[in-house]
Amino acid sequence: MLTTQQLIDIEQLQKECETHDHLQLKLNWEMLRKRESDQLDFFHYENGELVAFLGLYAFGSTVEVCGMVKPSERRKGHFHQLFQQGMEKIKQNEYKKILLNAPAGSDAAKVFLYKQGAEYAFSEHQMEWQEKPLEETDGIILRQATLEDYEKRVRLSVTAFGVDEEDARAMESQVFVDNTAMLMIDVKEGTVGKIRVSREEGQAWIYGFSILPEHQGKGIGRKVLRRVIKEQSSAGYSIHLEVETKNDHALRLYESVGFKVVHAQDYYKYQLG
């Protein structure tokens, strides 16, 4: 697992990079804080200060890669060195699909990724809820997921996100930290969906929100979002989520309850040579 000092160093470097570059990095803090080993994170220190970092985030057979370099330490080869170490680890672990992540507004990241031969794959919008009145919700129950919900969660990941079953089983086997709630969505017909809410430093993030295809188009998703928004905003949290830019249906749903796009992340496919 990562040490407290390493997590502090990563956070400080992230803030410095985001302030300097006027963008938002995606470092998957939920995963960083529950690392079971430090074998997926790579650090470069100069005089006791973290100046470059690269993290690998595995989702079944897919691995996402994200990193950063202190503005004054760029163009010195630090990140290229970490990138090579990360790719070697990916080769050892035999991940099938590699996605390199970079903020859409980072021209430097684009140049680096194209130099590596990476190919643009898709983008995600990062959205934040803007306060607005919401109707009351009824007819749905949000309850904590249990072991008995495992197969349903796998089915939801496969049918709603197009994830293959092996990856879905790996993803749904993850144990989340205390500040994360895995919730199942029940209606009178039974369990029809799931949603995960993670709270960190005044922010609530929505992940893995999915409704079974046969129950979509009935207004269930909108009710769930209203319920989650009301609960989290009442508790003092700002509310955030990510959605793939080409998912027009989801984008319209989120916008209808008050979410606005604030940042974008680009993803690139990468093949090991």
Rank of each mutant, 00 (worst) to 15 (best):
Q5L: 07
D9P: 07
E16D: 11
E16V: 10
Q24S: 13
Q24M: 10
Q24R: 15
L27S: 06
N28D: 11
E30A: 11
M31G: 09
L32E: 08
R33I: 02
E36D: 14
D38P: 02
D38Q: 11
F43I: 04
G48Q: 05
L54P: 07
A58S: 13
G60E: 07
T62H: 11
V69E: 12
S72L: 05
E73N: 11
R75D: 10
K76E: 13
H78Q: 10
H78T: 02
F79W: 03
H80V: 08
H80T: 14
L82P: 01
G86S: 05
K89Y: 05
Q92C: 07
Q92Y: 07
Y95I: 03
N101M: 12
A109I: 01
K110C: 06
E124G: 04
Q130P: 07
Q130L: 09
Q130D: 08
E135D: 15
E135G: 14
D138A: 13
L142R: 07
Q144H: 12
T146S: 15
L147D: 15
Y150L: 11
E151F: 03
V154R: 07
V163R: 08
D164K: 02
D167H: 10
A168S: 14
R169Y: 05
R169W: 04
S173H: 10
T180E: 13
M182K: 12
L183V: 02
G190D: 09
K194P: 01
W205E: 14
I206V: 11
Y207M: 04
G208L: 02
F209K: 06
F209R: 08
G217Q: 08
G217H: 11
G219M: 07
G219T: 05
I220L: 04
V224M: 08
L225C: 07
R226N: 13
R227K: 15
V228G: 07
I229G: 05
E231R: 08
H240M: 13
H240P: 02
H240S: 11
L241Q: 03
K246F: 10
N247G: 01
N247Q: 03
A250F: 00
R252I: 00
L253C: 02
E255A: 12
H263W: 12
Q265Y: 06
Y267W: 08
G273F: 05
